[in-house]
Structures are given as structure tokens and as C-alpha cells.
Design a protein around this nucleic acid. Structure first.
Lengths: 259, 259
DNA sequence: CGCCTCTTCTGGTCTAGTCCAGTATCTCGA
DNA sequence: TCGAGATACTGGACTAGACCAGAAGAGGCG
């Protein structure tokens, strides 16, 4: 039966080779997500039954993948009509992004200046936040994160060197810490506790961010956890109040499909 | 087989009468959630198989309910061990709360002073945000929200009077707008787009919030949607930067069970 | 006493169906 | 021409099983 709206064909779904150790559901999710990202919003995805045939899995497995796709904001289900491609425009609160990904999502080019890394013994407060013992070796990284070349945030972060030996030499000034931890140690950072407050910038911090002393900024205190719930990183970042805004979608993701 | 840790018994799960029109999964979710709220964190829930027997449903149905329970932060699954009761401590980003609920969760008593409601014709920008026509009747509400009697936020909000006729007379200065809309019109506000930025307070706003002119504050611009994705409310609130902090958990909720 | 293996438990993933309520389109008759 | 059904579709909810890996008690053996 002819469908009037733009519809994705099954052929256009490049069935990639499953990555090692992946479940079928994860494989389908990744395939659908990369498809959705390369497709205009509002496109009708193949039906769940068709996808099940295409991937040679049961419909429940497809539903699991589409559930996640929807919760990430890349799809929107409409009962009786189908599932539509959606492009999440806001930082959907369910997904936790690195600075680099955050900037790219805003259409800005992430960068970094003034990178300084040092090995430090954990103080009591750092040890408590990081879940290590007082005096344990930690890597402290400070850098100014830029967006399109202009200072956006001053990032200070702490990672346990006992959990990530050799991280200091693997780390590169311009890259996302999360990407490196994921690539080298195969640990996915997938959730974080964050506390956002307002502070006025001290003179040295203001200089680094290229604004006047006393200007207000967001102080983001973040504890990032891996999929086992273990603390991976504890950091405090200062985001320029005149350039940065937190955009979020709380609750069910909900951009409606075109008409 | 004896279990050493504190474990919930099936008898303690009060199998309430299913509310009209509810699915089995929703019923199980509600039962488990109210149970979790009345139980110390770390308690071991009955296994999925036992719950399936207890509720006379298949395990997949139980899993669906526990999935949601976990995503709301009330449970934490541990493979091989079981599912543990969890009490979400931070504003979990998946749930969207009213000012009143937000304050109560922080252990503060919500209140309100300086309530002013007026009927206004929608300007172009309000009309666009609210999804009504220019000139349509809207209710504009301004009030200072207090926490333990002290000013916390200056709330300005707009609601369509065409969708909620008679809202003005139903509204009471001290109550949550969301509660009233839910009670009177049976519409659940379940998601919102929010944009949080930093502004310096103007002289009149500073007076209302009892702080000095020019002090920084959070500007929260919020568009609240109902379960159909229709705009219900559009508002701008100013939260005192010296009293308020945004606490959130992004990604998978993850307080680990006790040991 | 301590270690190691066996067994039983847990949640994680998946299958191959079922029935239902909406949506959209096609077709036929007034 | 236009509206009313019939029909073929969609996702939503659910069933009753399956197999797996990891966790943890239970016993036995050195």
C-alpha cells in the first residue's frame, strides 16, 4: 500500500557487522540511531514488524531498541501511524554529554587552551568525592574549554590514577576526557550527579575566561559514574554566564512529528 | 533458601484494587512504587519471577514495570543479586516537578506572597510560545514564591484561558498551578522544555526578592507540555542565585544499594 | 579452618506468538 | 461528489516459555 509521507526503506538501513560482544538489541539501536541522524526529521521509520523481519529478530527485541531510541529523543512513536525520526534539539536530560559533544550539539566547535595536568595526592574532600583513600594518586586537569575559539568554560577535574594508570600520558589537551576513558579503558560514562549554582568569578578565573572580575558564572559540580555506579570523575567547571545557558527537556521527550 | 539481607515479603505488597482503565503494568508499577516509598532503601525486592507469580502476569510484564520503577529512581537492579529499593535524593531529571514539590523535596516549606493575576491579550511572542492566536485571552500570574517564608523565586507565568476557562477563579495564591490544572481539568503536566541562564536582577525584581539590585539570578524559561505534547504553560521565573541550586541526575539513575 | 566446587538463585536477553485500539486508505453506494 | 464501511496497517500490551552469565549460599575436602 502506498504511503504518502516520506518513508524510509529497509534497503537504506545499512546492516552493519555487529561489533564484538554486542547484543542484538544494541546492534539494532546503533543502526537505527545512525540512520536517524542521517535522515531528515519526520521521516517515517519502517514498522516494528518490518524491522523484526529485516534484522531476523522478534518484534519484542525491536521494541526494546526503539524504546531506547525514543528515550534518547531520536524517534517518536505515534500509535496507529508509525514511528518517526526525530532530531533532539535540546540537551535531553536523559543523555549525559561531554563538553565536546555538548558544544557540537549547539553547532559550536569545541577546543581547549591552557591545558595543565598534575599528579596530586587526594585531599580528604577529593578522596570522599572520588571514592578513593586519602593520599591516593589522582590526576588533576585544568583547562579552558573554548567554543568557536572563544573561552566558554574553565574546567577542573580529578580522576583516580589507581583506576586509570597511565591516563596522564594518554590524555590529550584537546580531546574529551570521556572519549579517552571510553576508548582506552573501555568504560562508558553514562550518568552523573550535577549541582549547578551561581558564583561570581575571582580575578584569576575571570582572566582565564576573558571576562571582568565579579561577573556571574555557572558553577557546575559534577560526579560522573560508570555503568556500575562507581565514581570515575569529580570536577568543578565554571561556565561563563554571558555565553552559556542550560537547555534541557525534563520528562517524556516530546517533539511532535511534522503534522 | 535464607536470605541474609533485609528482604521484602510478597505478603507485604498490598495488592490494591486496580484503578479503572489501568494496564496491568501500570498497576504493578504503582504498587511497587508506593511500597518502595514506604520501605528503607537497600531492601531487597522480591525477584521478578516471584512478582510475576504474585500478580498473575508474565515476567515480561513485571520487567516492564520494574524498568520504569528503575528509571524513576525507586529501584536499582543488580544482576545476579536482585532488585533493591532506592530513594531518589536528587531532582532526578526524568521527573518534572512544580515549585511546591521541588521545595518539599528539599525539606523546605513552599509558600507564596504578592499574588497578582490578570487577564491579558496574548502578545505575538506569548502567543507563539503558548500555541494560541495573537490577542487570545490568557491568564498572567505573578507571585513571589517563598521557601520557609523567605523569598526564593519570582514566578511569572502565562496560561491560555481558552483552554482553561474559569482558571482565574479556581486559582489560589498559595497552591501549585500544576496541581490545580491536574485536579480541575484532569490534565497531567508531564514534561517541559527549560532554558536556564544567568541574569542580573533589575531594581524592582531585586526588591521583590529581597536582595540587592544587580545580584545574579537564574532565569528559568519554561514551556510545560501535557501528555499529548500540547503547550499548557509558558513562564519565566527568577531564582535567587544565593539561595537556589539546580541539582540533577543525568543519565541512568544510580545510587548503589547498601554494600 | 580455609578453599573450592556444586547448585540455586538473580537479572539480561530473546523468541514467537496473541489480542487490542487507533489510523489511514480504498471502495462502493447514495 | 461525497460520506460510510470495510480493510489493512500501526504501535501497545501481554503471554509463556527459553538460554545465559554472574552472585552467593551449601558442602565437602584437605
Amino acid at each position: 500500500m502506498p504511503r504518502h509521507r516520506q518513508e524510509a526503506t529497509l534497503d537504506s538501513l545499512v546492516t552493519r557487522v555487529p561489533t564484538h560482544g554486542q547484543t542484538k538489541g544494541e546492534h539494532i539501536l546503533e543502526t537505527l540511531q545512525s540512520f536517524a541522524q542521517a535522515t531528515p526529521a519526520g521521516t517515517l521509520l519502517p514498522s516494528e514488524r518490518a524491522l523484526a523481519d529485516h534484522f531476523h529478530v522478534s518484534r519484542m527485541t525491536v521494541r526494546g531498541a526503539v524504546d531506547e531510541l525514543e528515550s534518547k529523543g531520536f524517534a517518536r512513536r505515534v500509535p496507529g501511524r508509525g514511528t518517526f525520526v526525530n532530531h533532539p534539539q535540546l540537551t535531553h536530560s536523559e543523555t549525559f554529554r561531554s563538553f565536546s559533544d555538548d558544544m557540537r550539539l549547539r553547532g559550536l566547535e569545541p577546543g581547549s587552551v591552557g591545558y595543565r595536568a598534575s599528579t596530586r595526592r587526594a585531599t580528604r574532600s577529593i578522596a570522599a568525592s572520588l571514592g578513593v583513600e586519602v593520599g591516593a594518586e589522582t590526576l588533576h586537569i585544568e583547562r579552558v574549554r573554548t567554543a568557536d575559539g572563544e573561552p566558554m568554560a574553565l574546567e577542573r577535574t580529578n580522576v583516580s590514577l589507581e583506576r586509570f594508570p597511565g591516563l596522564r600520558s594518554q590524555m590529550s589537551p584537546d580531546q574529551s576526557l570521556y572519549d579517552i576513558i571510553q576508548r582506552i579503558y573501555n568504560i562508558r560514562l553514562e550518568s552523573a550527579r550535577q549541582r549547578v549554582s551561581i558564583v561570581r568569578l575571582s580575578a584569576p578565573d575571570a582572566v582565564k575566561l576573558a571576562v571582568a572580575e565579579g561577573e556571574p558564572a555557572f558553577l557546575v559540580e559534577r560526579t560522573a559514574l560508570d555503568n556500575m555506579g562507581r565514581v570515575v570523575e569529580f570536577g568543578r567547571s565554571l561556565y561563563r554566564g554571558d555565553r552559556y545557558a542550560i537547555e534541557m527537556h525534563v520528562g517524556t521527550p516530546g517533539a511532535r512529528p511534522l503534522s
